[in-house]
Every structure is written in C-alpha cells, then in structure tokens.
Amino acid sequence: MFALIGIFFGIRSIKIRKEAYKKLEEAHSELLQSSVTSMKYAALEERTRLSREIHDGIGHQLTSLIVQLQALELMLPNDPKEASKLVSQLLQISRNAMAEVRIAVKEWSDDEMGLGLIALKGLISQTQARSSIQFSFCEDSEISEWSMETSTVLYRILQESLTNILRHSNANSAQIHMSEINDNIILLISDDGKYIGDTPLKPGFGISGIVNRCESLGGTCSITPNSPHGLKVQVIIPCNSTNYKE
C-alpha cells in the first residue's frame, strides 16, 4: 500500500513539475516576445528619425545647391570672375551633402543587422525625448551582426540602465559607448550624477537584473563610480553568445 502511495505521489510530482516547467517556458516566451516588440518599436522610431534627418539635412543642401546653380547660370555671361568664386561655394555644399549621404548610408547599413544596434539607438532617442538629461551615443569600433538573444539582452540591460539614470542619478548628461574588442561586445554607460562613491551601492532589483542578464550569456558586469561623480556600468558579453535564459 505504501509503495503504491509513493508511486502515486511520485507520478503526481513529476506531472506537477512538467506543468510548472511548461508554464515557465510559456512565460519566458511571452516575455521574450514583449522584448522583441519593444525593440521593433524602437527600431521603427529610429528609422523615422533617420528619414527625417535625410529629408531635412540633405534636402536643404540640395535646395541650396539648385538655387546657387541657377544664379551661376545667370552670372556666367556677364561676370565670369564672380561666377568662378561661386563654384568653390557650390563644391563645399556638394561635399557637405555627400558627407550626410555617407552618414545616412552607414546608419541604414547598421539597420540591416536587424534589431541590434538600431534598436539601442532608438531606445536612447525615446529616453532623450522624455528627459532633460542629454544622452549621447558613440560607436568606438566596427559592430558585427548580433544574434536575437544577444540583441535582446543588450536592449534590456540598456533599458534598465537608462531607467536607473532617469530615476536616481540626478545627472545632467550620460554617455553610451559601444565597441567590439577581441570577440567581445563592450557596452559602457556612464553619467555625471550625484553619486561620489562615498557609500556602498545597494544592488536593487534593477541592478541585479542587469548582472543576471549579463551572466546569462557568459558575460561580466562591473558597476563603479564615475570621475569626478556619477556612475559607470560596463557590460562585456561574448559576440557569439546563444545560451540566453531570461
């Protein structure tokens, strides 16, 4: 009798564990999908911003070029010397327009990587729009294409870091640096907030989440005082990480 009872509870326990594991997988899938949706929205906003910059920047340069070319056409028969001086100005306008084209092409090329870098830039733009803190983003090296798992982790880490800056830093500015060195992705987020390192940091839910997500891909995370004041978060993740677990 006791053996049968033991078997019954053993089977029931296995069934409960399987159901719990299934629910955990479903919850993880929903959370991952939510992150991907947020990344898509951020990427869409960044594409819209790029389109606006192309229209406003290059469009303005080309309009100016057309107007001055029309003036040059009128000047050529009557005042060739002045027309010659105008040519150098037109060349400079053309060079400026070409420079903006190159920047736009690079941005769109980064977009081909999917939801990696473009989503991070979009997230920064979104944060900037609702804050007086000045955020700047810099790529310190060539950036490769990331897996969806790596992109998701970096997006969530940056999201949490920016949220912490908004809520707790009392900063005027923050810098986000992205680079890849020796097959590692390095994300550095620093601010000029009120923290001066005089008291130990108390890891809350947000900081713990950053560390856990980083470690989920075999990476490391360091959180240190910034000089002369503020906080610095450095995340290092292997480029080819695929063992992500939320």
Rank of each mutant, 00 (worst) to 15 (best):
A3W: 12
L4P: 05
F8Y: 14
F9I: 15
G10R: 13
R12A: 15
I14N: 10
K15S: 12
I16Q: 10
R17S: 14
R17E: 11
R17W: 08
K23V: 00
K23H: 10
S29H: 12
V36I: 10
Y41W: 06
R49M: 14
E53R: 08
G57D: 13
G57Q: 14
S64F: 00
L74V: 01
N78K: 05
K81I: 07
S84P: 00
K85L: 13
Q89A: 02
Q92R: 15
S94Y: 11
A97C: 01
M98K: 13
M98I: 02
V101C: 07
V101A: 05
R102A: 10
I103A: 07
K106Y: 12
W108N: 11
G114W: 04
L115V: 10
G116K: 05
A119G: 02
K121Q: 13
S125D: 14
A129I: 00
S131K: 03
I133N: 07
S136I: 09
S136V: 04
C138Y: 12
D140Y: 01
E142K: 04
I143V: 09
S144L: 03
W146K: 02
S147M: 05
S147H: 07
M148Y: 05
L154C: 09
L158S: 07
E160G: 02
S161A: 15
L162P: 01
N164P: 03
I165P: 01
H168C: 05
A171P: 02
S173E: 13
M178K: 09
M178W: 04
I181C: 04
I186L: 06
L187I: 01
L188H: 09
G193T: 04
G197L: 05
D198V: 03
T199I: 09
P200V: 07
P200W: 09
V211R: 04
R213W: 08
S216V: 00
L217D: 01
G219F: 00
T220V: 01
G230M: 01
L231G: 00
V235G: 13
Y244C: 13
K245R: 14
E246D: 12
